[in-house]
Nucleic acid binder design. Structure first.
Lengths: 101, 101
DNA sequence: TCAACCAATAGCCAACGGGTTATCGATCAG
DNA sequence: CTGATCGATAACCCGTTGGCTATTGGTTGA
């Protein structure tokens, strides 16, 4: 879900903006996104569904903010992949050691 | 590019398999992918284009292996996002300190 | 109360992406 | 040399997706 959600450039830009500049209204995000307000709302909906953002209603405007801990699975996955790679390297070392005997 | 490339489940599974089990031929990858060989070849092409895999030709078969350092930008991006978040937190702390005086 | 405003939803469309089958080029075995 | 095998490419199909405009539901201010 995370990869898919972050794959779209427009949507990722919105998320990055929320990370860099904190809580923003839909209007503020729209004004710098280059796409229409409904498009932004749709992106925010997907980001929310992925747990990447949180929304807070205040009167007639909605404030969105990045939910950083949602990135944890991403870090875990990357670390896992690196880990697999290294353990395979260890296997190779073991193999070479055994061959050396 | 990385997010987009890793967004598709089939393609990501192929990459994960290469990370876990090291170098594999197209045939071996195909047999466990659930899709046709041309589909696998297409995925491998995209993974290669993203720098995530390397190919090595040996006779009539092609061996693919994960190119782990290609994940660095991903880790960087994640770290950056977390960093922005923390520095905003620092800003808030500064603000509170200044307000406290 | 009513007009204006903000954000979400509905409905539509064009483009893209991932899948397939068919085929081709190259390599190996007999 | 010839037939079989491996993987890449071509051509096509269809579902998904990201964009738009129009509209609706709430909320505010006059």
């Amino acid at each position: 879900m995370l990869f898919r959600t972050l794959a779209d450039p427009t949507r990722r830009a919105i998320f990055e903006r929320l990370c860099r500049q904190g809580e923003q209204t839909v209007g503020a995000l729209t004004s710098q996104s280059g796409v229409s307000q409904p498009a932004v709302s749709k992106h925010l909906g997907l980001l929310k569904q992925a747990g990447l953002v949180r929304d807070r209603h205040e009167g007639r405007q909605t404030h969105y903010s990045a939910q950083l801990n949602a990135l944890a699975p991403l870090m875990d996955w990357t670390r896992d992949m690196a880990g697999f790679w290294e353990s395979r390297f260890d296997d190779l070392e073991d193999l070479l050691k055994r061959m050396d005997q």
